[in-house]
Each structure stands twice: as structure tokens, then as C-alpha cells.
């Protein structure tokens, strides 16, 4: 069984578990995103058909919440906090450094090799550690541009050895 087929069977399971109930669209989307790491268009059309709602409705919900991603994300998601505390502790300079390091811009936030996605978030609730950076599930506090770039280099080294 290939990956596409496996992913898709999971989607069918998710729909079944949620009894094809259109009122459960949001939990369904969350679970589907866990499977694909984003919400592919054809899967959203499939969900819409299975739930008997218009695709435009699914699209509307998927674009309303910033949690949902419509484009594939990289293997490592770097979240730089730009909440008040982190902002005054110069989170912007970290952002600039990471963008420079990975060749990313405001419009282009995923590297072409699909390794990194860079996101600027409002507040991670780790204000005591400001400025904070989260890479996937790991929180890194009291960051500087240099420390952040070092973390990226570490990941790159690990990936190269795989």
C-alpha cells in the first residue's frame, strides 16, 4: 500500500468515526490535517461530498482558522513568537536572521526542499522566556539570532546524516 492510499484510508476512518456528520467539520479537518500535515484541495472536496455540504463551506472554515494550513508545510515548523514581551526583546531580529538563513520571505515561508516552514505567531504563552522560538514541539527560550541559526544548523547536520 502506498502512502497516498494509506493516508486516504485514514481519512475514510476519520469520516466514519465522526459519522459523516457535517456538524463535526472542524474536528474532522483537525484530524485530517494531522494525517497530511495540511489540507489538500482534493481531500477537502472529498470531505465536502462525503458530508453533503458545498466545497465552498469547507474552504470557508479551513481559511477562517489560522490553525488550518492549505499549503504543505515543511518537516520542521519554526514558530517565532512576536507577542508583546518577545517583540520588545527583539524577536524581529530573530525573524530576519532565520529568513536570511533559509532564504524565506513574508510570502514564501516554506523552503523548496520542504524541510522548514517559518511562522510568526502572536503569543506562545512563554513570556518569561522571551524571546521564544518553538521548533515543532520543542520550546527554546531566551533566544538570539545566533542561537536560532545554530539550532537550524544542527537540524541541517542531522538531516544530512540521514
Amino acid at each position: 500500500m502506498n502512502t497516498a492510499q494509506r493516508n486516504f484510508e485514514k481519512v475514510c476512518e476519520i469520516l466514519e468515526k465522526n459519522e459523516n456528520n457535517p456538524a463535526r467539520l472542524i474536528p474532522i479537518l483537525q484530524e485530517v490535517q494531522e494525517e497530511y500535515r495540511y489540507l489538500p484541495e482534493e481531500i477537502m472536496t472529498f470531505l465536502a461530498t462525503s458530508l453533503d455540504i458545498p466545497p465552498a463551506k469547507v474552504y470557508g472554515v479551513a481559511t477562517f482558522f489560522s490553525h488550518f494550513a492549505l499549503k504543505p508545510k515543511g518537516k520542521y515548523i519554526i514558530k517565532i513568537c512576536d507577542g508583546t514581551a518577545c517583540h520588545v526583546k527583539k524577536s524581529t531580529s530573530i525573524l530576519d536572521a532565520v529568513r536570511h538563513k533559509l532564504g524565506l520571505t513574508e510570502d514564501k515561508n516554506t523552503t523548496p526542499d520542504m524541510l522548514f516552514t517559518l511562522e510568526l505567531v502572536s503569543c506562545l504563552g512563554a513570556c518569561g522566556l522571551a524571546p521564544a522560538v518553538v521548533i515543532n514541539e520543542d520550546v527554546h527560550g531566551l533566544m538570539t539570532p545566533a542561537k536560532t541559526v545554530a539550532l537550524i544548523d544542527e537540524i541541517l547536520k542531522k538531516e544530512a546524516s540521514l
Binding site: E41, M44, P54, A56, K57, F65
Partner: peptide, 19 residues
């Protein structure tokens, strides 16, 4: 039918066909 619906949020909110 529901060919058009609200998408996005806040200042970016728009009425759009699917996707």
C-alpha cells in the same frame, strides 16, 4: 447550492467560490 461562501477572516474576509 452554496457555490459561494465566506472565506478568510477579519480584514481579509471575502465571499469566494470554493478554493
Amino acid at each position: 447550492i452554496g457555490a459561494i461562501d465566506f472565506a478568510f477572516r477579519g480584514a481579509k474576509a471575502a465571499v469566494l467560490p470554493s478554493f
